[in-house]
């Protein structure tokens, strides 16, 4: 009997009549299920984890490789013409124009690069999310101020602004009343300043559409305050776009840091930075190709890995994608 078969199927598909505590898969569990299937993103995530470990344990890595520290200048490593020597067993990535080991500097460069890009991304995202939420939720003059500021920031030649600020803040006592000292904090502040605008705009748009939803009205009619609505009702719905956007902002900031360092407005010497290494390498590129190659490869791989992970996250979090 066809009806019977259908019925059986129907009942078999569920634990009918058997009491069970139903534990639903949470959105994060579903997200991991989807993300795990994306091999490219998973491999990239593996690379990023490796890179972070390398950066955190840079002294250990350098010790294992048996190379001198990143700032050890050894003129014996230059040949009789004063030119650096290439990759060898003692110095797998060769040495630079001052006789410093390129492997050590690349490893320590990962520290600089990740530290700056991740910190700048966190700050920019935080600022962007707060301002974007306020603008989208309250509208009116709050929105006007935030949105016009974003417009003005976006109309600036951002790179020139960053360059100017970075070099300005790198002198003497720094800027913003000594709050931003020369060094890493300058670069972080400059990058955060020019990159908070995109998340702010994105979040504002999301909030504008979210606050039209009836669950916001429902919460308000229950007596919830604005703060409660913003943080308990709206913010949880923004987690996905925030994570996706932040993950895509990190590679951009890695490149921005490299570019600032390349132009001499990044972290001051002798701190190792990939961008600064490439900049130093340009003058001796014809004889010492390794000096440019390794930090260059490091930048490309890192930016690529973060981008691929970001794409993977976007795909895995897309609510319209099926399980």
């Amino acid at each position: 009997m066809s009806t019977g078969t259908l019925l059986e199927e129907a009942f078999d598909s569920d634990a009918m009549g058997r009491p069970e505590v139903v534990a639903a898969r949470t959105p994060s569990q579903r997200f991991w299920r989807r993300f795990r299937q994306d091999r490219v993103a998973l491999a990239s995530l593996g690379f990023i984890v490796f890179l972070i470990l390398v950066a955190v344990f840079a002294p250990v890595v350098v010790a294992i490789a048996g190379t001198p520290g990143p700032n050890t200048i050894d003129s014996n490593l230059l040949n009789s013409f004063g030119m650096p020597t290439g990759p060898s067993l003692e110095h797998p990535f060769g040495v630079d124009g001052l006789g410093r080991d390129v492997l050590s500097r690349t490893v320590y460069g990962a520290r600089t690069s990740l530290e700056i890009s991740i910190l700048a991304t966190l700050i920019a995202t935080f600022v962007g999310v707060i301002l974007g939420m306020a603008a989208g939720f309250f509208g009116g003059w709050v929105d006007t101020i935030v949105s016009r500021s974003v417009d003005v920031m976006l109309a600036f030649p951002v790179f020139l602004l960053a360059l100017g600020l970075a070099s300005g803040c790198s002198l003497g006592n720094g800027c913003a009343g000594g709050l931003i000292q020369p060094g890493i904090s300058t670069v972080v502040a400059v990058i955060a300043l020019v990159s908070w605008t995109y998340p702010a705009r994105l979040i504002r748009g999301q909030v504008l559409s979210l606050k039209q939803k009836e669950f916001v009205d429902a919460s308000r009619s229950l007596g919830a305050s604005n703060t409660r609505i913003i943080f308990r009702e709206i913010l949880p719905n923004l987690v996905v776009p925030i994570i996706v956007y932040a993950s895509l902002m990190i590679p951009t900031n890695i490149l921005l840091e490299a570019a600032l360092s390349f132009l001499g407005a990044g972290v001051p010497a002798p701190t190792a930075s990939w961008g600064a290494m490439i900049s130093d390498a340009t003058s001796i590129f014809e004889t010492a190709w390794w000096y440019m190659l390794f930090p260059g490869v490091a930048i490309v791989l890192t930016a690529l890995a973060f981008n691929l992970v970001g794409d993977g996250l976007t795909d895995a979090m897309n609510p319209r994608a099926s399980d």
């Binding site: 939803k213 669950f215 009205d217 009619s221 229950l222 987690v239």
Partner: peptide, 25 residues
């Protein structure tokens, strides 16, 4: 006093898809 009054007046909304926060149990 408004919050107090809201306790006495409650609403059932039209769209059951948009009236429940998808991120909450």
């Amino acid at each position: 006093s408004l919050k107090q009054a809201r306790r006495d007046i409650q609403m059932v909304f039209q769209d059951p898809y948009s009236s429940l926060n998808p991120r909450k149990r």
